[in-house]
Nucleic acid binder design. Structure first.
Ligand SMILES: [Mn+2]
Ligand SMILES: [Mn+2]
Ligand SMILES: [Zn+2]
Ligand SMILES: [Zn+2]
Lengths: 168, 168
DNA sequence: CTGTAAATGCAAATCATTCGCAGTTGCAGG
DNA sequence: CCTGCAACTGCGAATGATTTGCATTTACAG
């Protein structure tokens, strides 16, 4: 493979920082995943990489994606359609809502939710090590104000509930 | 298959009430799932059924389990280990916490959590149609390193168990 | 340069699950 | 009791995602 003389992608830098040995195809895959804003499956990663440099195979994409995941550079997602998806690991842990009409994936993050989930685990006597949360829904147009108000009310109530139930 | 003269299982009654056509092997599978308190995968369902009456095949278990799921009699679970699990549908929708030490599955239910999740979906402009929530935790607080090590060990152990379970 | 370990590409193997098809079964109607 | 047909079943082969064995290539330390 022709050595890549372009500037390293964000993921390539992270790999280097973590001591992951880089090669031409690994750099290519790191670039593809850095540039992807969605949650591509392995075949999509392969296609995007192949489009840039055809010196790449599915087997290598599978191996590299596993390597990157183990190194914590990317994260594997399972949206229930039988294939693994990947995305660059960002600091925040967010969750996903899958639009049942068009398959679009909406990301979200909610501290109350996170806190409540952790409280639930604690109440069961466990220290939370991981969460997998996916929502499936159909787009339902309605007033954003109303939704927001309801959420705030609920969150206030829940915050109290969490406080009440936190041990110690 | 020898007609079953025993009293119908809970799931068999529910199937009948829903107008699902029953046969010998469907009754058998309904009984197995009625009697199961865990979350068996298809192979486990097959083994348990086979132990009662060997006139059953994997293909039929797969077909029946799909039929029952479509009818809403049982529910499919995905614990991320690459195979589907099933359990009788109860009224409550509960979630699962997987013990990283021993693989045990703890069920839980939490109305606040449910409400907050729904509110989140609403705020995103969606009507919630489904939730997938699994928690992974350890029963005693420990260091992150140890947690990771244990997770890896567990995964290796589970993979081996799956391999061992498969004869020939 | 050279030698060696690691990485790659290809094809074959796995694994859970589905499907085609030929034989079987369960009745509805006679 | 028969009969006929649609539904059901078992078997093995197909599927689709993922992994792996192996021969070849690459990276690079010495
Ligand atoms: Mn998370
Ligand atoms: Mn899955
Ligand atoms: Zn995401
Ligand atoms: Zn359950």
């Amino acid at each position: 493979m022709v050595p890549n003389k372009h500037d390293p992608s964000r993921l390539e830098r992270i790999c280097q920082a973590k001591g992951v040995k880089m090669t031409g195809q690994r750099r290519l895959i790191a670039r593809v995943l850095s540039d992807s804003e969605d949650h591509p499956d392995v075949e999509q990663v392969y296609r995007r990489a192949f489009a840039i440099d055809s010196e790449i195979s599915m087997a290598t994409v599978y191996r590299t994606v596993r390597l990157f995941e183990t190194a914590g550079v990317i994260e594997r997602r399972d949206f229930g359609d039988g294939r693994a998806r990947y995305e660059a690991a960002r600091g925040d842990h967010h969750h996903h809502l899958i639009d049942l009409d068009n398959g679009k994936v909406i990301e979200f993050r909610n501290a109350e939710l996170e806190g409540l989930i952790e409280a639930v685990a604690l109440e069961l006597g466990y220290r939370l090590e991981g969460i997998r949360l996916e929502l499936y829904g159909m787009s339902a147009p309605r007033s954003a104000e109303e939704a927001h108000t309801r959420t705030k009310q609920l969150q206030a109530r829940l915050a109290q509930a969490v406080r009440d139930r936190r041990p110690r």
